[in-house]
Write a protein that binds this DNA or RNA. Structure first.
Lengths: 109, 109
DNA sequence: TAAATATATGAAAAATTATTCATATCATGA
DNA sequence: TCATGATATGAATAATTTTTCATATATTTA
């Protein structure tokens, strides 16, 4: 069953448009990590990390390798680097306040 | 106020991880369009189109030009093309069923 | 200026997604 | 094999986001 471009994109982007999952990806940029390390780094519950690893894995952003009882997760391919680069370029060029969008900002106050 | 990479990415990706907004972007790939045209093409309410145009505008994915009572929206820069290309590459390479992720698929049945 | 058309907006309701808790699984070493 | 440590998972709740409806605003033309 083939799917249109924007539908494929939706599956794809909905997986990465989440602060926890993005933080996981950002941390994995530095190298493979197991669940406990991610849990500690992101200061979140372990179950939350696991729940968030799953969609990343399912859509091929990361891969996993077992070592004993631990599981090491690492980035799969260059997709994440490419994406982050596109975002950085875009935000530098078009977003007046470096990715801080006005209305989100108001919300925060 | 500077913000970390993954936070910038979150603002950015949360804007495009929506089927309506992606469909708008996909259609604008072919050229500028006004709200009525988008409304008809996407078969959605006009208010929904307007509501969804706003975040796209706010984050610089699109720009707008007034002509009489109409407003023509068009893509801003190459960000969208770049993003779509990254997704296509990724899904061809890593997603077994061309962007159709197993668990989303199950959900649909 | 009144009517008509195009678009935007606020607020409520509906839908989706994230988070937590409790517990299950699974591999290891005593 | 039992205890331990690491990770995963299901289900309930909480939080966020989308969608709709009603209506406002703005521009043009009669």
């Amino acid at each position: 069953m083939k799917r249109g471009l924007s539908q494929t994109c939706y599956v794809f982007f909905s997986v990465i448009s989440n602060p926890t999952r993005l933080a996981i990806l950002e941390n994995l940029l530095r190298g493979p990590m197991n669940v406990s390390q991610l849990t500690e780094l992101l200061k979140q519950r372990q179950s939350m990390i696991s729940h968030n690893l799953r969609p990343l894995l399912r859509c091929g952003f990361i891969k996993v390798e077992r070592r004993g009882k631990e599981r090491f997760y690492s980035l799969n391919g260059e997709t994440v680097e490419h994406l982050f680069r596109v975002v950085e370029n875009h935000s530098q060029k078009y977003c007046p306040t470096m990715g801080v969008c006005p209305s989100k900002e108001e919300k925060r106050r």
